[in-house]
Amino acid sequence: MDALPAHMRPERSFQGFILALQRFWAEQGCVILQPYDMEMGAGTFHPATTLRALGPKRWNAAYVQPSRRPKDGRYGENPNRMQHYYQFQVIMKPSPPNLQDLYLKSLAAIGIDSSLHDIRFVEDDWESPTLGAWGLGWECWCDGMEVSQFTYFQQVAGVECAPVAGELTYGLERLAMYVQGVDRVYDLNFNGRDGADKVTYGDVFLQAEQEYSRHNFEYADTTMLFEQFKMAEDACKKYLAAGWREGGNQKEHLMALPAYDQCIKASHVFNLLDARGVISVTERQSYIMRVRELAKACGDAWVHTEAGRAV
């Protein structure tokens, strides 16, 4: 790491920070993927996690995923709450016996020295009602701040994980703020340069936060969104139904991934409707159930595909 130019050092630039994590996990044998090209609420929704966590095949991957939480928009006025932020996601299946050590080494790689910082694993049971998923693990604290989620998946999309995958999620902005020592996310140095060459996180994203907050809370077209939800739901079911084949002596599925895209879509549309405040408390539950049904059906299809089934 010492060979890195100053502007690429993880404690100097946001992009250097991301690159350091990617390099670290690449060295552990992970495939480094690029973000999934769809809007989603968390990195867990990426098919590289949700679907690849299922089935017996080995799978080690890491990627950055922009996460959209329409309700968390604050018009750019809150120092650390945003409707769009980055998660760094690692999944290792089966979970290696030294996953905690690897995680701590990854912190060292981004400049968090465990002889100076107080790093703790504090109980946190993870559950995603929309994904029909749960796992046990911790939130990882660094000097009293939650910086990552660490989960051993037990069930995803209604399917028991066999073997279990370990999942790590880093809140990138928050960690980078800590490492760079800034209190406001928009003050993060994005490119590690100084003076006129310096680009901040605010330069890149502040306007987007303002515009999307307006959109999410005030103008998002709810008629269209209600329709989109229904369309995505129908399409998902249609692709799932169409994908089944009787292949040899076992059932096969040939369209789990396109069907799952529609599940991701439905979930994001629901989040937008929720932010617009047009879904009542009782309806809310039923929308969550509908997305979960899609996720479960996709999970069931996935374990009948080439990548999801045994051998």
Binding site: P94, P163, G166
Partner: peptide, 19 residues
């Protein structure tokens, strides 16, 4: 309790609070 690691691929693997 939970399962973990290579052995969790098979049924009857040990369950513990964490690995």
């Amino acid at each position: 309790s939970m399962r973990w690691g290579e052995r969790s691929a098979k049924s009857g693997s040990l369950s513990w609070v964490r690995p």
